[in-house]
Design a protein around this nucleic acid. Structure first.
Lengths: 343, 343
DNA sequence: GCGCATAATGTAAACGTTTACATCACACAC
DNA sequence: GTGTGTGATGTAAACGTTTACATTATGCGC
């Protein structure tokens, strides 16, 4: 059961066994193979906790997300976990449930478990808590937070690119009144997406009409309610971008409910490209955010912070691109004036 | 940083600090509050690994699933995690990716991390591996495996109930040719669902026509392909049950693609009731399997095994029920002969 | 004031590893 | 034969806790 018993049966010291398990450096092949035999025979597994205790390094990586039942996250988790596992790291997954207080407990758990590094894939942030981790020398990877410092890297999603492609696409189809359904404005990621949209509108010299912007909650019901609001406008938008796909699903639902058709009467563009978007009626045109890759990148960033030569963090970039399906088409009121020039 | 420093600053022994952190039994309130002050001031967190090492108990629970990006699992994970956390357990999540070999590594990781208990929510099983856990005295909770033994409990999903309700519902609507799209037959859970369906058909004295049974893969594409097969039948079914919702989504897609209508031409019933089922076109009639509750129950079962008086495991039962939405309606060829009697 | 139960606290061993350092055997140069 | 470098192995301390046991202080009955 313990290294001692292995050592005893193999007639070597515990030090030798330890060396064999870990690096095999400077141990004779003969002894090594004999000890390996005993290890297999006894079905011995080293005790992680003892290892961590003495060596100080833990081979545990923390992954903090908002909520696993938000379809954005499973792929991120998968990407992160797969590659972490391949490198013999254990992953501890915690969720904030969008609640800043639970963030504190997430961080505490990371510290208690002596996580070697932490990837924070949620935007509920807390300066002090981060400081807590930093002070303990734990490398951190953030999502969409602008700074790279010592032992802190940052993954920046280029929302603007995808949104630009979407607006581009809609303008080409003759749309001029383009609405937007945002996420909850207390969420950093929602604000980022929203401002990328507004910025883009400017580039196209389209009037920024705050009436065309509704706030959702990044869930289906919120998207539905927000879409009803936009539909009640006397001059309703001919196309609507949404802050995430679930919101778009809600919008589709609302439109269907008032007996309008997508894309004939209204075009809808989602964001994220969750798998189910292919199967809505009609299949959803959306901006793809590669989530598995995001998870993988979070691991890579962490790994570089852990094993890299420099302790200085970096900023990584994830691209987003439009995926055209069937929820967008020509604007119903399209004149032949063509698309506006990009500024 | 360590208990010693706390002890030193509070002018007590490490034993006293330990007692204060853990049980507070037989330590004077005065000392306790003084020590707590120091703990907070130093921002001290006990080292989990040291704790586990000496005490032998680990407050880590293992959760083994197939694949987090299968929409069945996030809710299970959520249910399990939430209640585990409330009870100060850490959760280690591992995925088999439907691969028996990876199951071995999942189990090894559980042992290495000295998990206090393990919930295995996937049907890829392996006798030896389980024995490995059992021999180490680690309590286990299974899903849909019939035995309860020492330190082993089992959660049984009552698939039959929900399927019975579904067939009942379809028969009441005049359907006689009811098809079934199964999951991959190498999956235990898929086989269980399939045989529950066949059994039910018997109860209704409906002919068991193997041509009406197609094999999918529990994913959308598989459901789609399987549905095409059923549609090509010279006497195609008027209603189709599916082994899970994703399969049903695929079926909807296939039907839509050949310009038939759901439910007018064909009724579809899913299984699981994943959230997105409400938002398909039409919203999916399905059998609800309460996943969050399943996760919670897995924790409870584990907890009882850990802290309960008896080491003997139990069998728990999860009910499934039909949720009627809009993907089912009267059979197109319905005669007025009424529904067949239940045997 | 004495003895004794009880409450509060301290001492030190133990948990299973890793690792710096010590030891040993051996070969090789001189 | 002596010294010295090297490769293989052993010894023992250390990691940060918990906990059985020991010790000390406190209060109470008589």
């Amino acid at each position: 059961m313990s290294i001692k018993q292995v050592a005893k049966e193999a007639k070597v010291s515990t030090a030798t066994v330890s060396r064999i398990i870990n690096d095999s450096s400077s141990v004779s092949p003969a002894t090594a193979s004999r000890v390996w035999r005993v290890i297999r025979k006894q079905n011995y597994y080293p005790n992680t906790h003892a290892r961590t205790l003495v060596s100080g390094r833990s081979r545990i990586l923390g992954l903090i997300i908002s909520d696993i039942s938000n379809p954005f996250f499973p792929d991120v988790v998968k990407g992160f976990e797969d590659v972490a596992l391949q490198n013999d790291y254990e992953v501890i997954l915690t969720s904030t449930n969008y609640d800043a207080r639970r963030m504190a407990s997430c961080v505490r758990r990371m510290v208690e478990n002596k996580a070697a590094g932490v990837a924070i894939m949620t935007s509920e942030m807390n300066r002090e808590l981060i400081g807590d981790l930093a002070r303990r020398g734990i490398p951190i990877v953030f999502l969409d937070v602008g700074k790279a410092r010592n032992r802190m890297s940052n993954i920046c999603v280029d929302y603007a690119q995808g949104i630009r492609e979407a607006v581009d696409h809609l303008c080409a189809l003759g749309h001029r009144r383009i609405g937007f359904i945002s996420g909850p404005m207390n969420l950093k990621s929602a604000r980022t997406r929203r401002s990328a949209f507004l910025h883009c509108l400017n580039e196209y010299h389209l009037a920024e009409d705050s009436g065309l912007i509704a706030e959702g909650n990044h869930k289906i019901d919120g998207g539905e309610v927000a879409m009803y609001r936009l539909l009640k406008l006397k001059k309703r938008p001919t196309a609507v971008l949404t802050s995430n796909d679930l919101t778009a699903f809600g919008a589709l639902r609302a439109i269907h409910h008032v007996k309008l058709r997508v894309p004939d009467d209204i075009s809808i563009v989602g964001f994220d490209d969750i798998e189910l978007g292919q199967f809505t009626q009609p299949p959803l045109t959306t901006v793809r955010l590669p989530r598995v890759e995001l998870g993988r990148m979070a691991y890579d960033a962490l790994s570089r912070l852990l094993h890299g030569s420099s302790k200085r963090g970096s900023v990584y970039r994830i691209e987003t691109h439009l995926v055209v399906r069937s929820s967008t088409s020509t604007a119903p009121d399209a004149h032949s004036s063509g698309r506006p020039a990009r500024s």
